[in-house]
Design a protein around this nucleic acid. Structure first.
Lengths: 193, 193, 193, 193
DNA sequence: GATGAATGAGAGTTCATTCAT
DNA sequence: TATGAATGAACTCTCATTCAT
């Protein structure tokens, strides 16, 4: 029964993301969720002990999936700038393509439901990107008079705003714009910029 | 006859902000709200027709108050850079000082409750800051090979991340750090930077 | 202040009848009532101790007014049949013209709010009509092999149904039909019919 | 899984009738109803979407049941008069035995909750009885100088008053009285009466 | 007396969770 | 395991009544 089980969990997650993007975390009910996932309400409780547990696990799962996407294809790049560009675009495209998930993650991140542990994990998932910046500094690719965390926050915030406004239709991004956005960010942090 | 009481409205708003920061929009109940504001539940309904109306009005009010704070003290500055610095710090400090409100605004902004009208208003409130950037470009203070909206989003995103991480204790900001953050942003957009 | 007071009471009664015909006794609220009567809610409580008292008094008042209308112009009639006809038409026209009031009276009459005393009073108000029937029997105008109460109930029920269906538009009554209805009733009860 | 339970619907209906006869439609609360039916409040909402729907359905159900009872045993009668007598007694006994239901039906019928559709249905349910009268006229059993609708309203009104006063104890009916009442009605409408 | 804001018990309804099948 | 009917606490909102002005 392994396969069917996994399938049900997937359906539950998918239904949750879909519904939350429509009605918010507040508006999500277990009845709606079960219906969307084509399950009985009771069945959901076989796989998740409570609504809270479900939301928590969904958060962790989505966060991990997102983190995996960020570094994808990076190692194939020829130089540091290209690597960073890859990460930049990965995250930007992720925020656009998985906008529903991103909104959920952000809402949850700033919600009272999040636990200390989850916050720590969130920080830990940023580490690979922070490491990349550190490496850049060590290899004289990035300026040294700006701390890595600040660079990172600038990158992150810029991307989030770009993606957010794009999804709402207030600032449309094509491939050229995306690259331009990266170039501007790069200018700011490159050695001798 | 007792007279309709502006003070009660303030107490209701204050209680709402306080509770939402603790338990989220989802967790806000009219009973808790009334208790926190030291009113009977029915009294809240004299001033606000429904919970939804209350939340909507709170959003609009906070947004407008926030917008007013952003430009404060700007005209006193001697030059363009100082003016922009003032706005930068205004927003950054606002995001820190009024973190509860900011979180509420952001949550609401991405929630299904927000109306088209409110979204438009939100955009309109950004206009004065956008105008400042435009003016900077026109007066040869800012580079012209980067569009104003992009500059704005970079500023905005950077500030939000800084404030967010500061409040969570992951990236502590003092006055020096704040100014450094502004300097980095300025480098990116100044003419001939 | 006598005059103003009486005026307010009238306005309250009128508003109550009007609203009850629209929304039922259940749907009547003191706030709506006050608004309709152009008074403050508190003012209503100066004249009526509670909603229940108001409804009770309204019932008694309307019932008495109705009773007065029934015998109107009867004594002017030349003979017994004409007298009875007058009463018949009085009641029929009353049920049509004051339909809202009649509906209220009937609803109240069958409701749990009515007291034993009020029920007795209601019966007492029928007495003049019952007396008329008795008198008819005594004077050999009416058959004696049918008890007076039964005659009365037949009259009453017939009139109520006629008026009810007329108001709903299911059985339209003009003057000719009204007289015909009386003639049929008369046939049934007249001596040697 | 527990199966949806027709018995529960019956209990809800029964509790509703019982409570309405005690406290009126206005006084019926879902909490009282659930308690009387020995269910949780939420359970009532599984079977009826809202209080209004419950009341509506109850009305339609009772009306239909009542209509069925009226014609019962009629076809077994040897002649037209006997048939009509059967219907007369059916309705009279129904009004006495199911007095609570009858009061509810009447209250609802004159209430603002009733819909056009329901009014039409109510009229339609009268048709079989009206048809019986028509048939009586066609077969020269009933007089032709009185329209069928008027005959019907006379019957109906008479019965309602008789039953109403009987239940209140103001006019006691035994089997003899009932037959007498029918005889009087018959006299009025029979051919050559 | 007149006003209508204030009150809070209680209304209808929802929904996370349980449980009989 | 899977189901969805059943539960009842908790929600939003109403409204008869009170009370400060």
């Amino acid at each position: 029964m392994r396969i069917r089980d996994e399938d049900k969990i997937k359906r539950i997650y998918k239904a949750a993301i879909c519904l939350i993007s429509e009605v918010g975390i507040a508006g999500l009910t277990m009845a709606k969720l079960a219906k969307e996932a084509k399950l009985a309400t009771g069945t959901v409780y076989i796989y998740f002990k409570s609504k809270e547990v479900l939301i928590n696990k969904l958060f962790t799962k989505l966060q991990q999936e997102a983190a995996e996407r960020f570094m994808q294809g990076m190692e194939k790049q020829s130089n540091f700038k290209q690597q960073l560009c890859r990460v930049f675009l990965n995250y930007l495209n992720h925020r656009i393509k998985y906008h529903d998930e991103s909104v959920f993650l952000e809402q949850y991140y700033r919600s009272p439901y999040i636990t200390k542990d989850q916050l720590q994990l969130t920080q830990a998932l940023k580490q690979p990107v922070l490491d990349l910046f550190h490496q850049g500094q060590d290899n004289d690719e990035l300026r040294c008079d700006m701390d890595v965390h600040m660079m990172f926050l600038m990158f992150l915030g810029f991307i989030r705003e770009l993606a957010g406004e794009h999804v709402l239709g207030f600032y449309v991004l094509d491939e050229k714009k995306k690259l331009e956005a990266f170039e501007r960010s790069w200018e700011l942090i490159e050695k001798g910029g």
